[in-house]
């Protein structure tokens, strides 16, 4: 882990995770029945645990419906979780740490750069808005907005007075990044922040994110469906499938040696960049199942190539695997009953 510049807000020291997420659950009701009693729920996030270390970038990958964006919104408390606890640098969010104080330290950048800016505010007012809400005087907030504009590569004298519709997608996303930094957060959640950008502009914004991370000692959660981008940005990667964590580990390890069959299939689905080594067979068939009625046991068992009878009955817990990742797969858990698993250790 790289050295993080000392931050007076740092409580537990570099070893204490910046964020600890315990058993996070969010179910959305659908098909409200008679008298508003909901009949079914979308199990969007169904028991997610992870730690985020100070100064790292955690990539979250998975297909649509896997709960990666819901996780991001839960972390920001944009939607309240049904269950679970978020601990920020040792303090339980909403209990020890009031929400306004938490949100000052955690900010977010969204995919749609246009929808996330107020069309009736100038760029400088958008960036200065949050600091002013938090009590910074107008003049000071605007001065800081200009500094931030320069930091994200936009000439303040040219851009400060413009409106969002006058800018390109790449410029608007730079504004959103500047706005996220206006409160001097410690954690920035980037939810598909570069996905809507053209490739040539995407590279510029990725470079900017790396520069800002170094300059401000930031920690990132980087959510993307683009595995190439995640491999480039992330120190550790979390793979999600239907509201659960399938695997979490160092990016190098997960990309080189995925331990969960889903991670392996996801990586093998990336288009080849070599015309002489094109993909010959699709790693998976069909679409991800519906999170309204997820499969029993291991949620991946309906599409898994290594499925055994036990997989539909037993839900695998996220456990340490031999390779250093944490994996939720019965094959990696001794004594699970899966034919490919090692026998349980004898207890003397």
């Amino acid at each position: 882990m790289k050295d993080v510049p000392h931050d007076p807000r740092d409580r537990g020291g570099p070893r204490q995770p910046l964020l600890s997420v315990n058993r996070l659950i969010k179910h959305f009701p659908v098909n409200k029945g008679l008298l508003g009693r909901s009949k079914t729920v979308v199990r969007a996030v169904d028991g997610v645990d992870f730690d985020l270390l100070k100064g790292e970038t955690l990539g979250i990958v998975g297909e649509s419906g896997c709960g990666k964006s819901t996780t991001a919104r839960l972390l920001m408390h944009l939607i309240p979780p049904d269950h679970g606890e978020i601990v920020f640098d040792g303090e339980s969010v909403g209990h020890d740490l009031p929400l306004p104080d938490y949100r000052r330290q955690v900010q977010m950048v969204f995919q749609d750069s246009y929808a996330s800016l107020n069309p009736r505010l100038t760029i400088e007012d958008s960036i200065a808005f949050a600091p002013r809400v938090h009590g910074v005087p107008r003049r000071e907030a605007l001065g800081r907005a200009h500094d931030l504009l320069a930091r994200v590569g936009l000439e303040p004298s040219r851009f400060a007075g413009r409106y969002p519709h006058e800018l390109s997608g790449g410029q608007r996303q730079r504004i959103n990044i500047a706005r996220a930094l206006a409160l001097e957060p410690r954690l920035v959640i980037l939810d598909e922040a570069v996905s809507a950008l053209d490739k040539s502009v995407e590279a510029q914004v990725l470079n900017l994110l790396l520069d800002l991370k170094e300059a401000f000692g930031l920690t990132y959660i980087f959510i993307s469906h683009d595995l190439n981008v995640v491999r480039f940005m992330a120190d550790r990667v979390m793979v999600m499938y239907l509201g659960k964590v399938a695997e979490i580990g160092s990016a190098q390890q997960v990309f080189a040696q995925p331990s969960h069959p889903y991670s392996a299939a996801l990586l093998a689905s990336m288009p080849a960049m070599d015309p002489d080594a094109r993909t010959e067979t699709a790693p998976l068939y069909g679409d991800p199942p519906n999170p309204i009625n997820p499969p029993s046991g291991c949620r991946f068992h309906t599409r898994c190539g290594s499925v055994a009878s036990v997989c539909s009955q037993v839900e695998p817990a996220l456990e340490d695997a031999a390779s250093g990742q944490r994996v939720a797969c019965l094959m990696r858990q001794p004594g699970s009953g899966h034919p490919a698993a090692m026998p349980a250790l004898e207890v003397a």
Binding site: G170, S200, L206, M233
Partner: peptide
Amino acid sequence: QGLLASRAHDAMSGARLDAIPGAP
């Protein structure tokens, strides 16, 4: 050349991408 060079595909993690400046 620029498009191929700016891809995050084989880039070293933590290095900077060789981005094309400007916008279309």
